[in-house]
Simulated scan of single mutants.
Amino acid sequence: MNKRSVYAWVVAILCFIILMAVTPAIPQSQEYHDFADQREFLGIPNTLNVVSNFPFLVIGLIGLILCHYRNYFQLRLQGEVWGWTCFFIGVAAVAFGSSYYHLKPDDDRLVWDRLPMTVAFTSIVAIFIIERIDERKGTVSIIPLLLAGVISIAYWRFFDDLRPYALVQFVPCIAIPLMAILLPPMYTHSMYWLWAAGFYLLAKVEEAADKPIYKWTHHIVSGHTLKHLCAAMVPVFLTLMLAKRSIETERISLFKTWKISWTRIRENDSKVESYSCTYTSVPVEETS
């Protein structure tokens, strides 16, 4: 590990320690378990919040199979294979963990809801490090990041403090879109990362507006159910990206690509504005 990596880890750890020292603990609110839609169909409690997790199982299994079936995704690096395998395992496990939680929501079951999501989050961060920063560092970071996620959940459960878990969940939400925009990609179709991030953001909005959405839809569907469906679109877009992408011959970041496109648009606009017409006089012959 070079000096720059050591400094980065030291700074990150110091920032975490300072954050934990200066911020108050965030206990798990019991109101979180009081979801808007608590209807029961076919003997299944909270039916829609349970069955809306099924897409996670489908896309998780599809992605997991394609990761290993004749290398359909054409993953070139071993670290990528491990990272995407962990990601799709986490996605598929969300279906079981979240369904188990929503059958009878409480803190004990919430652990199994959050654990697979944390596996997916941390795997994505490792994948980004592999693709955008350094293959070796990203591969080595897979296990530490997964452990950090597990520890954050254990810390919450034992000390009733959500701060470490909040970092694990929300830091990737900021870091991944920024890295997708600013860092040169190894592969094409980088825009799919932003589509995935957009759907995840929409899912969080729907989660926060669980009861208002349930009211606005005249008790047809709640925000939390829609949150599950939108969140499932994240692995859908990432699976499509993996299926379509190829090696990027010119590694140019999205930001630089947008900047070049914007410059060309401005140049074209300036050419149109500077365009001038020259009029010539045409003699008119008078008739007697």
Score class of each variant (00 low, 15 high):
T287V: 11
F158Q: 05
Y32F: 12
A25F: 05
H189D: 14
L147R: 03
A208I: 05
D113N: 08
H102L: 08
G138V: 03
S29V: 06
P283M: 13
K271W: 12
P24S: 01
Q78F: 13
V119K: 00
V234A: 11
D210Y: 06
Q74T: 09
K211N: 13
L77S: 04
R114N: 08
G43F: 07
A148W: 02
F237T: 05
G138M: 05
R266Y: 14
F96C: 11
Y200G: 01
R251Y: 05
V150A: 08
E131T: 08
K259W: 14
E250L: 02
A12Q: 13
G223V: 09
M20P: 01
A232T: 07
I252L: 10
P177V: 09
F54Q: 06
I181F: 12
E285S: 15
A126T: 05
K104F: 12
V234H: 15
P185Y: 04
W84E: 04
E207Y: 13
I44H: 12
V58H: 09
S246G: 14
S274V: 10
Y192D: 11
L77K: 13
I133M: 13
L145C: 00
V284C: 06
F56D: 01
F73R: 14
Y275D: 07
S270E: 10
V22I: 09
G138R: 00
I213F: 03
L42V: 02
A209F: 11
V171S: 15
L64E: 10
Y279S: 07
R70Y: 09
S246M: 11
L147Q: 00
E248I: 06
R132M: 00
L238T: 08
A231S: 10
F255M: 08
D134S: 13
E267Y: 15
F56L: 03
M191I: 06
T217A: 05
F16G: 12
D37P: 01
D113I: 07
N268H: 08
Y192S: 04
P105S: 08
P116F: 00
P283W: 10
I142L: 07
L48K: 00
S141T: 01
P27R: 01
I252M: 05
F96R: 06
S152C: 02
I17W: 11
S276V: 09
E250Y: 04
Y275P: 02
P283E: 12
V94W: 00
G149Q: 00
W258K: 09
L178Q: 05
C15K: 06
I26G: 09
A36V: 01
G63M: 06
F96N: 11
F16N: 04
F255N: 04
M233N: 00
T225F: 13
S190Y: 03
N53H: 07
R136G: 00
H68Q: 05
S276L: 10
T278I: 14
P184A: 08
S141C: 06
W156A: 07
V22W: 06
A196V: 11
R163D: 06
S29D: 15
